[in-house]
Design a protein around this nucleic acid. Structure first.
Lengths: 342, 342
DNA sequence: CTGTTAGCGCGTTCAG
DNA sequence: CTGAACGCGCTAACAG
C-alpha cells in the first residue's frame, strides 16, 4: 500500500502557477478561463492525478449527490430488477447509489433510513416498506430532512412523500377474476408475512370471494416470510397439507416465489399443473419463465418502478412537490393456468 | 417540502450553553463529559433533531466510511447473494455501501470504479471483474488511491490487490470428474462471453478432456452474455441444435443460469433429465433448487465470498497488507445427474 | 472536565 | 479573465 497522499486543489494550483479559484473553474467549467491557462491547469491535474474531494465539495455546496435506497431483501429477484432500474437512472443523473437492506425487519428498516439521513443523502427511496409496522411519525420526521419516495407501499399516504405504486388491488382482483373466468371457484390464496402489499391483495381477495359467497378462512394461508431465501421451500411445505385437505382447483399467490413453491407442492402431490390445478403468480420476475410450466403471473414492470422512482425523486430534490404514480398491472398468460375441469 | 434547515453543531452548542467541542464529545463519546452537561446537550440534540454532518466529519477526518462495490449485473442471483454477504458485514463495521453495476461492460466497469474513487470511498470491491479486457495499469492506478479486493477473478494478480476467489479450476475439474465417474464421456461444455471465470473453467475442461483424448471443439459452446436476464432462454435456443447434432450424455455448465437453460432445452427435445442426459450447474444459487429436477451443482458459498471480501478490505483500510483467500468449492449432488446409460 | 481555535478541501463572492 | 479571502460543519490539539 504505497498510498500516495492525494493531491489537493492547492497542489494543482501551485504546479500550474494559478490560484485555487482558477483550478476550480476549469474543473467545473462554469466560468470562462483563457485557453492556455486552462491547458496548464489540465496538465497539472493529469500529472498529479488530481481527483476533487467530494466531501469538501459537498460540504461547501451544502448538499450531497447521492441517493439512498432501502430494500427489504436481496433474495427476491423483484428487488434486483427494481434496483437495476434505479441504478441505471441514478447513474444517468450523475448521482451515486447507497444501498441498505432491511432484512424484512421494521426495526432495521428504520435503522437503514436513519443511516441514510445521517449520510446526508439528497433523497431516499424505500422499496416495499413496512409502513404497517412503523409509526407514521418516523417517516414524517425523515421527510423534513430529505425527499422520499416509496415504491409499492400499501395504503398509507404521508404528506409530502412521493409514491410509485402498482395498482395491486386491481391487479390482484383481475388475477382472481381471470381464474374465475376459467371456471375456478375453489381458489387458495397464498400470502406472506410482513408487507403492505400482501394485505392489499388479501383484502381484494376477501372482497371478491365473499361477494360471491365463496369465502372460506381455511383457503387463506400465510406462509411467513415472503422474500427470503427459503420462501419457495417454505411455501411447498406449508401448502402440501392444505392442498391435500382443501383440494383447490386453483392457487393465487402474492408473488412468484410462492407460486413456484406452490408448483413444487403440486408436483410432490402428483397433481398436474395446469390440468389438475392452476397456479397464478405475481411480479413476473425472471424465475417465472425459468420453471416448467412457465408461470402465468401479473407483471409489475419492476424496471419502470425503479426508473420512475428516481425521476420523481430527482424532481423533488430540485424543488418539485411530491408526486404519486400508479402503474397498471397486466396479466401475463403462460402455462400454469387452465380451465377448471370440475 | 417544508424543509427545515438542518441544525448544526453550533445550534446545539448554543442551546445547551456549551462549546461545540463539548457537543462533539457527547456525540462521539470519546472524551469524558459531566453527566448533567451531557444531559443538557442530549436534550438540545433531541429537540433540534440534530444529525451530524457526515461530509464535514469525513472531510476533517480525511477519510470516508463508505466502501464501494461494483457488480457486473443484478440478473444473476449469484451477485445478489454476494451483495447480501457484503451488505451485512459492511453494516456491522458501520460503513455504508455504494453500489454500481457494470452491465457486463468493461468500459462501464472502469467508469464505475472511477466514480467510486472520485467519491473517496475508503475501499473498493469488484465482483467478477473483466480483467481480461481491462488494462492492468488501470487497476494498479486505482490501488494507489484505495485498497481493493477482487471477488472471483481469474488468473490476474495485481500487486497490492487482495483476492477472494473460489478455486474454480479445481471445482470445475471435480465437476467434470464427477460426471466421468458416472460413466459420461461425451460431455458438452457450456460457457458465456466475457468473464475470467468462464475461461478458467474452459481451460480446465480442455485439459482434462484432451488428456483422455476426448476433446472435440464442437462440444464447447459459448452462449454469449452469461449473466443477463435472457441468459436462460439464450442458452436453451443455442443448445437445442447442438444437442440434436452431438447427442451428449452430459452437459457441464459454467453457471446455474446456463444449466437451467440446458434443462429446458432437454425438455423441449423430449430428453429426460437425468435418465437421458445429465446436467451439471455451477454456483448453487437459489434457482438451482427451484427447478425440477433440482440441479446438481458446485457451491461457491456466495455469502462467505462477500463477508470475507469485506473483512479483508476493512483490514487493508486499517493498514494491513493485501491478502489472498481461496475457497474450496463443493459439489452439491441433487437430481439432475445420473449414471450414463450408453 | 470544558472552551478556543486551527484547519480539512473546495466553491464563491468580490475586487481587480 | 484571475486572485484573495471567507465559510461550509466538524474534530483535535491545546489551554485552561
Amino acid at each position: 500500500m504505497l498510498k500516495q497522499k492525494k493531491a489537493t486543489i492547492i497542489d494543482v494550483a501551485k504546479m500550474a502557477r494559478v490560484s485555487v479559484a482558477t483550478v476550480s473553474r476549469v474543473v467545473n467549467g462554469n466560468y470562462p478561463v483563457r485557453q492556455d491557462t486552462r491547458d496548464r491547469v489540465q496538465a497539472a491535474i493529469d500529472t498529479l492525478h488530481y481527483v476533487p474531494n467530494v466531501q469538501a465539495r459537498e460540504l461547501n455546496m451544502r448538499h450531497s449527490t447521492t441517493i439512498g435506497v432501502v430494500v427489504p431483501s436481496f433474495y427476491n429477484m423483484f428487488f434486483a430488477e427494481v434496483i437495476d432500474g434505479i441504478e441505471e437512472t441514478v447513474r444517468n443523473y450523475n448521482y451515486s447509489l447507497l444501498i441498505n437492506c432491511a432484512k424484512n425487519d421494521p426495526q432495521q428498516e428504520m435503522d437503514c433510513v436513519r443511516a441514510l439521513v445521517a449520510r446526508n443523502v439528497s433523497g431516499i427511496i424505500v422499496v416495499s416498506p413496512n409502513t404497517a409496522h412503523i409509526h407514521a411519525s418516523f417517516y414524517t420526521d425523515v421527510i423534513s430532512h430529505a425527499p422520499i419516495v416509496f415504491i409499492n407501499t400499501g395504503w398509507q399516504q404521508l404528506p409530502n412523500a412521493s409514491y410509485v405504486n402498482n395498482d395491486e388491488r386491481r391487479g390482484s382482483a383481475e388475477a382472481l377474476q381471470y381464474l374465475m373466468g376459467l371456471g375456478h371457484r375453489h381458489i387458495l390464496f397464498v400470502r406472506g408475512g410482513h408487507s403492505d402489499s400482501y394485505t392489499v391483495k388479501e383484502e381484494s381477495y376477501r372482497h371478491i370471494m365473499s361477494e360471491k359467497g365463496l369465502l372460506d378462512e381455511e383457503l387463506i394461508v400465510n406462509i411467513g416470510e415472503g422474500n427470503s431465501i427459503s420462501t419457495v421451500d417454505k411455501t411447498t411445505e406449508t401448502l402440501i397439507p392444505v392442498i391435500r385437505k382443501k383440494n383447490p382447483t386453483a392457487i393465487s399467490c402474492c408473488n412468484d416465489l410462492m407460486a413456484v413453491g406452490a408448483l413444487n407442492a403440486c408436483k410432490k402431490l402428483g397433481l398436474r399443473v395446469p390440468e389438475d390445478v392452476s397456479i397464478m403468480g405475481y411480479d413476473n420476475i425472471a424465475l417465472s419463465r425459468f420453471v416448467e410450466p412457465k408461470l402465468t403471473t401479473v407483471d409489475q414492470n419492476m424496471l419502470q418502478l425503479g426508473t420512475d422512482a428516481v425521476t420523481v425523486l430527482i424532481d423533488c430534490i430540485k424543488g418539485a412537490s411530491s408526486r404519486h404514480i400508479t402503474l397498471q398491472n397486466e396479466i401475463i398468460e403462460r402455462d400454469s393456468t387452465g380451465p377448471c375441469k370440475e
